[in-house]
Each structure stands twice: as C-alpha cells, then as structure tokens.
Design a protein around this nucleic acid. Structure first.
Ligand SMILES: [Mn+2]
Ligand SMILES: [Mn+2]
Ligand SMILES: [Zn+2]
Ligand SMILES: [Zn+2]
Lengths: 145, 145
DNA sequence: GTTTAATTTGAAATCCATTTTCAACAGGGG
DNA sequence: CCCCTGTTGAAAATGGATTTCAAATTAAAC
C-alpha cells in the first residue's frame, strides 16, 4: 500500500483551508512518505534536491509545518538542536528510545506508563494534554561486550 | 540553611579544575540559589543586572554551564526555545508537569514510572542512561470552571 | 608588595536552525 | 485567457547559544 490515506488527508486539508495543490507540495509529501522516519528538514531537503534541484529549503520547511498542522506528520525534538518530523502512522501514539552511541531510535508504547502519567497528573490537579517521554541509553549493538 | 553545600561543591570544583574564584562567579551562584528554579539564562542575567549592571550575559551563560558541569545545577528544556536551569537539590531526580496556560511548573517523581521505563527499555535491549518525561496540560487554577 | 603567567570578563561578533521577506511565479475559478 | 490569490525560493532577518579577543583580574611566584 502506498499511503493513500495521508495523501488524501493532505489534499482535503488544502481544500478546506483554501490552499493550493502545487507540484512542490506533491513532491515533498511523496518523498516524506518514502523516506525513513525522524528526519530533519535538512535531511528531507537534501533528499529532494537530488532529484529536483529547484526545490527551496523554505518550501520544504513550510510544507513540513503544513503536514504537522494537517495531522499527517508530527514534529519531534530529541535535543540535538534540530526538529525532526515523522509520519503519524495509524494515529497511534508512541514514545522513543534513543541510543546515545549510534543514534538509533526505537519506538515503543506502554499503556501502563501512559496510565500512570494520567494518574500522577490528576493527583496534582492537572489534566494532561500531551506528553513527551524519551529514554536515552545504549542499545545492544553498542554495548561493550 | 543557606545552601553551603552547593557553594562548597562549586568551590571544590573550581580548585580541582584549576579555575579561579571570581567576584562574578560568586554573585551569580548567590543569585542562582536565591532565585526560584527553572529560570533561563536571560532571567538570571536580568536579575543580576538589577543589583550589578556590570555583569555580562556571556559570563552568566558560561557560569551556568559550569554549575551544570560541577553538578550543582541541571539544564532543562521545555520546548519554549530557551534552556532553563535549576539547582539540583538533594541529588534526587524528578520530572515535570507544565501548565500550557499559565506556564506553572510542578515537579513530581513516581517510582512506578521510573521502574517501568527501565523494564521497557531492557525488553528492547537498551540500558537507560537518562530520560526526559514532561507532562503538558492544564492546572487546576486554569481549568474552566 | 611586586612581578608574572594564566585565567576571566564582557562587548561584540559569530554561529546555526528557524522563520520571514518580497518580487517573480503558478493555480484554478470565472 | 484573465485575474486574483496563494506559492515559491533566494536572501535576509531572527534569536538563543556560543565564541572571539583585548583588557582586566586572579593567584601563584618572587
Ligand atoms: Mn517515532
Ligand atoms: Mn525541576
Ligand atoms: Zn546504538
Ligand atoms: Zn495553569
């Protein structure tokens, strides 16, 4: 399958927002869906340049923000100084495990942790809107034997 | 009590690192300990300027980094684009709950969540070095009645 | 106290990801 | 087509973090 869902969602988004469907936006969405996840604006920009040198960084940046606004992408920040984007696949939430040695990123989701977060926040009078959970450590590949 | 612990620790740190004890470093540490937690470099800089207009932003910045290096402060990043520092009181870890309306920051620590993080990471072959957990929501003061 | 070598300071410059500007350009309804 | 409006991309601006460098300060050595 070829991610028709995201493409349609973006198309609808453009229409309802009175925005235009452009060649660049199509190219960027195409490459964004093709490429692996957690890539920075720069990453995506460079990939796009290979095939189409006429694309501008500003357009890639603006289009990624549109993706996030429309809900087909999410911005992440792993503390390396540049924002990263990933396709919000399947509408399911997940958190991240990041290897501080090789940079590998593993996704996980644990309902028990999610539940405890709500409980703890509730006990302090907060209703949670969103959260950020990142675990930094060393993956099995990088662990000294 | 007047936080002699942090002051001594910093003093020792300067000696062992071959660094010098200066008037500015003392002023900055004094004000850092006096002021509330989670303040940005800019925040601290402005507070210091009130009493002592001769202090430079660069010095505040460098000194805060020294505090973090020496272990009496920790840098935090709550996604508002500027780093914040807090005194690492009592050597005990905690996470944060942030009100998206008024910006209030509440600290918490839940051993069950900490434990689950280790368990989940272990199941994926990771050993955790550190983590970041921030809950964003609405506090009781800001909740629509 | 004086000299000396090394570190520190702070204003200004630089860095660097992000965001904005703006004139040229493209889309798409009429 | 036309026209209006949204879009593009090169370049400039932004803003927090960091570095530069000459002058000032510190602390150890005379
Ligand atoms: Mn992910
Ligand atoms: Mn805190
Ligand atoms: Zn690794
Ligand atoms: Zn609040």
């Amino acid at each position: 399958m070829e991610d028709t869902k995201s493409k349609n969602r973006f198309k609808d988004f453009l229409v309802t927002q009175g925005l235009k469907s452009t060649h660049q936006r199509e190219l960027i969405l195409e490459e964004f869906l093709r490429a692996g996840s957690h890539l920075s604006t720069e990453d995506l920009y460079l990939r796009l340049r290979r095939k189409n040198p006429r694309i501008g960084y500003a357009t890639v940046h603006r289009t990624l923000k549109l993706f996030a606004e429309c809900g087909i992408a999410e911005q992440r920040n792993f503390g390396d100084g540049q924002a990263r984007y990933e396709a919000s696949a399947h509408d399911e939430h997940h958190d991240h495990l990041i290897c501080v040695v090789c940079g590998k990123i593993v996704e996980f989701e644990d309902p028990r942790i999610e539940e405890l977060q709500i409980e703890v926040a509730g006990g302090l009078g907060f209703s949670i809107e969103r959260h950020r959970l990142e675990l930094y450590g060393c993956c099995s590949d990088c662990r000294p034997a």
